[in-house]
Deep mutational scan, measured.
Amino acid sequence: MSGIALSRLAQERKAWRKDHPFGFVAVPTKNPDGTMNLMNWECAIPGKKGTPWEGGLFKLRMLFKDDYPSSPPKCKFEPPLFHPNVYPSGTVCLSILEEDKDWRPAITIKQILLGIQELLNEPNIQDPAQAEAYTIYCQNRVEYEKRVRAQAKKFAPS
């Protein structure tokens, strides 16, 4: 494992614990031996107030490669969400998460999670990743928002 990646992720964890947006979660997972795995984080993004996503808490896994922060983490909703920019596998399609697009090593975990929260309610229809959600979003916004509200209710924190 890269010392650069681990040191950056340790800084990220410290900064997150000191200050993070209300309702968001970002925690490194534990290895079988109980030690912390900084390369694999369990996160959760709350649906934004005043949107059909409100009330939901959407679980996301963030996986970092050894060359982080040169390369972005892979962000994957578990379980996958109904959304035009979420692949059926759950992987998020967002330009700041793509090395050859808008990724920059200075982007923080907090910025990534806030960017994904923004994307939930403002899909990028130029870059669809899920045919069904994309089609319904474009053709029947009322039905799309109904499905999103049902999903938010399903993923409401207990």
Rank of each mutant, 00 (worst) to 15 (best):
M1P: 05
S2H: 12
S2P: 09
S2C: 15
S2W: 02
S2V: 14
G3N: 09
I4H: 10
I4A: 12
A5M: 13
A5K: 06
S7H: 07
R8G: 01
R8S: 02
R8C: 09
A10Y: 01
A10V: 11
Q11E: 11
Q11H: 12
Q11D: 12
E12T: 01
R13G: 00
K14L: 09
A15N: 08
A15K: 15
R17Y: 00
K18C: 09
K18S: 09
K18N: 03
D19S: 04
D19T: 15
H20R: 08
H20T: 03
H20G: 01
P21R: 00
P21C: 03
P21S: 07
G23F: 03
G23S: 11
F24K: 01
V25Y: 08
A26V: 02
A26T: 00
A26G: 09
A26I: 07
V27I: 12
P28T: 01
T29L: 15
K30Q: 07
K30P: 09
N31V: 06
P32E: 10
P32H: 12
P32N: 13
D33V: 01
D33C: 04
D33F: 01
G34P: 00
G34C: 08
T35V: 03
N37S: 14
L38T: 09
N40V: 12
W41P: 03
E42T: 12
E42F: 10
C43P: 07
A44T: 09
A44F: 03
I45F: 07
P46D: 05
G47V: 00
G47M: 07
K48N: 10
K49Y: 09
K49Q: 10
G50Y: 14
G50I: 05
T51D: 02
T51S: 13
T51H: 06
T51C: 13
T51Q: 14
P52K: 11
P52Q: 11
W53N: 07
W53D: 04
E54N: 04
G55D: 14
G55M: 13
G56R: 01
G56K: 05
L57T: 07
L57S: 09
F58S: 02
F58Y: 13
F58C: 05
K59L: 11
K59M: 07
L60G: 08
M62H: 05
L63K: 13
L63S: 14
L63V: 15
F64H: 03
K65G: 11
K65A: 05
D66S: 10
D67H: 15
P69Y: 01
P69E: 01
S70P: 05
S71G: 15
S71N: 10
S71A: 15
S71W: 14
S71D: 15
P72L: 01
P72Q: 09
P72C: 11
P73C: 10
K74M: 15
K74Y: 15
K74N: 15
C75M: 11
C75W: 05
K76F: 15
F77C: 03
F77D: 00
F77S: 01
P79Y: 15
P79T: 13
H83P: 02
H83D: 04
P84V: 15
P84K: 00
N85T: 00
V86D: 02
Y87T: 05
Y87V: 07
P88T: 15
P88K: 11
P88F: 09
P88Y: 07
S89E: 14
T91V: 15
V92E: 00
C93D: 06
C93I: 00
C93F: 00
L94D: 07
S95N: 14
I96V: 14
I96Y: 05
I96T: 15
L97M: 12
D100I: 15
K101R: 14
W103M: 05
W103C: 00
R104H: 01
R104F: 02
A106F: 01
T108S: 15
I109M: 12
I109Q: 05
K110R: 12
K110M: 06
K110Q: 08
Q111T: 13
I112H: 12
L113A: 13
L113E: 02
L113P: 04
L113W: 04
L114Q: 12
L114A: 13
I116G: 05
I116T: 13
Q117G: 12
Q117D: 07
E118S: 07
E118D: 13
L119P: 01
N121R: 11
E122P: 02
P123T: 00
N124S: 06
N124D: 01
I125P: 07
D127G: 08
A129N: 00
A129Q: 04
A129M: 01
Q130F: 07
Q130E: 08
A131H: 10
A133T: 05
Y134L: 04
T135W: 12
I136E: 12
Y137V: 00
C138E: 15
C138K: 14
Q139L: 11
N140I: 00
N140F: 01
E143G: 09
E143R: 06
Y144M: 00
Y144C: 00
K146P: 00
K146Y: 12
K146D: 14
K146S: 15
V148N: 00
R149H: 10
A150W: 09
Q151F: 05
Q151H: 04
Q151M: 02
Q151T: 04
A152N: 09
A152Q: 04
A152D: 00
A152T: 07
K153A: 15
A156D: 15
P157E: 06
P157Y: 09
P157K: 15
